[in-house]
Design a binder for these strands. Structure first.
Length: 208
DNA sequence: GCGACAG
DNA sequence: ATCTTGTCGC
């Protein structure tokens, strides 16, 4: 299924010239692993203001299997995202885009599903090889898999562990890196993802 | 058979 | 993802 859907992914910039809102998404699970908490944080780029928070709690019936993460997370994210009252210009996800064994990570899945520009920004590697980027914020190294560049290992803060950036849908690698960097304030992780992460973290604690 | 493996 | 413990840098 992923190999087939990967054919629908567009790795070229097809996003507004003026990106004014970015949606950060994330999910978490209860101790049991059977309930999923998903959230989306819509941020206005110019002011760094959170315009809307959407969330959902649904049963998690698909297990976590490396390479199949989107089948665990997308059902919960769908319920949360359908509550948005305005479409985002860009979506940034906690997971890979095309830096995936079949070039169809979570960000691609969400991007194709909603036909929105998406970026994959993962904290660790799933596949591919890369050199260690220089220590300065903004430094990057190509992430290569079977002879093809599928993403970049990008340093978002001086001397801090880099993140794994890859196009999800309708964005180039260059644009994915640009926005990832632009959305990182004082931390390693882009602000919209951090906000979504905080939300699902609270939901998880409250359910316990 | 063994190691790797987003969240 | 989540949890726990040890280490590092400011």
């Amino acid at each position: 299924m992923q190999a087939e859907l990967a054919g629908l992914v567009l790795i070229q910039d097809r996003l507004p010239g003026r990106v004014s809102t970015v949606l950060g998404v994330d999910a978490a699970y209860d101790d049991d692993g059977s309930r999923a908490f998903a959230a989306g944080a819509l941020m206005e780029v110019a002011t760094r203001t959170v315009l809307q928070i959407v969330s959902a709690e649904v049963p998690a019936d698909f297990p976590y299997i490396p390479g199949l993460l989107s089948f665990r997370e997308v059902p919960a994210l769908e319920v949360a995202l359908e509550k948005l009252t305005q479409a985002p210009d860009l979506v940034i996800c906690d997971g890979q885009g095309i830096a995936h064994p079949r070039r169809f990570g979570l960000a691609c899945h969400l991007g194709v599903l909603y036909d929105l520009p998406t970026i994959g920004c993962a904290k660790t590697r799933l596949t591919g090889e890369a050199a260690t980027p220089a220590a300065a914020r903004g430094s990057r190294a190509p992430l290569v898999d079977t002879g093809r560049t599928i993403g970049a290992v990008l340093r978002t803060q001086d001397g801090v562990k880099p993140v794994y950036v890859s196009p999800g849908h309708r964005v180039s690698l260059e644009t994915a890196c640009h926005w990832t960097l632009a959305l990182c304030g004082q931390y390693r992780i882009p602000e919209p993802i951090r906000v979504a992460d905080q939300i699902v973290g609270r939901m998880k604690r409250q359910a316990r």
